[in-house]
Each structure stands twice: as C-alpha cells, then as structure tokens.
C-alpha cells in the first residue's frame, strides 16, 4: 500500500512559519467519532474525499485556535498498530514517521477498555498524546460513568471528555492542545510493562539497537517490534528520508540479539 507520509512532513518541515503550524493526527478505533471530531474542528476547511463513511483515505483539514494554526489528519480507524492490515500500517506509519506534533486519540466512552489498548500502544511510539474520551452522551445514557481526571492521572497524559456530535467539550479540547504545545502541561506517560523475561529481551535488543537508531524514534518500541519479528519496521526506518544510520550494521546488530 502506498503511504503518503511525505506530504505532511514536508509541509511542516519546510514551511517558513513552522513555529505556528502544528500537525495533529487523529487516531482511534473505528466508529468512535473521529470523523465527527474532525468535521467539528475543521468545519469546511478540508480536502480529499473522505469517501467511504468509514475513513479509508486519509483526510486533511485545517483550523486555527488562539493564534496557532493546525493541520488535522483523520487516520483510518484501527484496533491496534500491529500492521496486520493496510489501515493499521497507514496509521502506524503516520504516527511513527510523519511525527505529528500531537496525536489525538479519540476513544469511545462506552467501551473504554478496548480503546485503551490502542492508546497504550500509541504511547509506546510517542508521548505527545492527547486522549479524547468521546461519546460521553451515549455513555451517560447507558449509565456508564468515566472519570476523565483519573484517566489522565493513570495514563500520565492529558485527557478531555467530549460529545462531538453536539460539540460539547471541543473548546476545552482545543485549549488543551494549545496548552500542550505551549508546554504548560507536564507529561509523564504510563509505560507498558511486560513480563520479566520479555523485559530482559527487550532491554537487550534495545541496547544493541539504540546507537544506530535516529534520535526521534522510540528505541524501546523498535526493540519490541523486532522481538515480534516484525522486521519491516527496520526497513521503514532505513528508507525514511531523514535517517542517517548505516542500514547493514543495523541489521547485523539486530540479528545478534534476537532471543
């Protein structure tokens, strides 16, 4: 599947007023209201046909808030980032390689647990994450209560509750985006911990890999992928344009420390 990650990295890296232009990726499970949040925030300022109601093509839109300009990218809905489908690959590659300034993960308040699965995985790639607990109105109707403040504390990243269809909570969502970019919010993301044996392997691989990896990539996450034998990630890193490490060496190192 062709992945167009260049479009945005160029627009962010080469644009003269980068200071004031921020890319927000919109991730989440299918049907959690990503497109609704997207439409609410960008209004009519969007292009590319978001054809199938279930987003297949990446859609982009823009909005401004408190003098910052945002480009919002609606990613396909996925349950995980393990690239078993092209959708997941698009989402993962965008979050990992296009390095949006903030990844906004939209969650369904009525079944938060399965959504947290994705949030935790995204936190392994980047810590610039904002959680948006959407569909609060549906949750209330079903007698489900979500403690947003507690969620933020548990995850160590900001969280906002919304009901995107009626627009509820979107102002504070934008305010939190702004605060995050202004560095006003302390972020201490919860890290996934695996069983001791896995942790030992991960650490071993990570140590060997780290010197060869570009600084912007989370080496622990790469180590995990390698542990799972998802070697495609290494090729992706090698092929990525602002990479500067010797690919052959990288692969040899990897081979040596697999469990």
């Amino acid at each position: 599947m062709a992945i167009n990650t260049t479009l945005l990295s160029e627009s962010t890296e080469n644009s003269p007023d980068k200071q004031n232009n921020f890319v927000i990726a919109l991730a989440g499970n299918p049907n959690v209201g990503k497109s609704t949040v997207f439409n609410r925030l960008t209004g009519l300022k969007q292009h590319t046909g978001n054809w199938p109601g279930k987003t297949v093509i990446k859609a982009e839109g823009t909005f401004s808030h408190r003098n910052r300009h945002y480009t919002l990218v609606d990613l396909p809905g996925t349950y995980s980032l393990h690239t078993s489908s092209s959708d997941e690959e698009v989402a993962r590659d965008f979050i990992c390689f296009s390095r949006p300034d903030i990844t906004l993960v939209v969650c369904d308040a009525t079944c938060l647990e399965r959504n947290l699965n994705l949030v935790l995985q995204i936190l392994e790639i980047t810590d610039r994450v904002l959680v948006c607990v959407n569909l609060l109105d549906e949750a209330e109707r079903k007698g489900i209560h979500v403690d947003i403040a507690m969620l933020a504390r548990q995850l160590g990243i900001p969280a906002v509750g919304t009901a995107a269809r009626s627009g509820r909570g979107l102002e504070s969502l934008k305010n939190v985006l702004d605060d995050m970019l202004a560095g006003k919010i302390a972020i201490r993301p919860r890290q996934l911990v695996y069983d001791p044996e896995l942790e030992r392997s991960i650490n071993k691989i990570e140590k060997r890999l780290a010197p060869y990896l570009p600084a912007w990539i989370n080496s622990r996450w790469v180590a995990l992928r390698v542990l799972e034998r998802d070697f495609s990630i290494l090729e992706h890193i090698s092929n990525h344009k602002n990479n500067d490490f010797p690919r052959q060496v990288l692969k040899e190192e990897v081979a040596l420390c697999l469990p």
Partner: peptide
C-alpha cells in the same frame, strides 16, 4: 486502568 476509571451499571 479502565477498572479505576469506568463505573458502569
């Protein structure tokens, strides 16, 4: 995490 955050009837 969910257990600490979600209360449902």
């Amino acid at each position: 995490v969910s257990a600490q955050v979600v209360r449902s009837k």
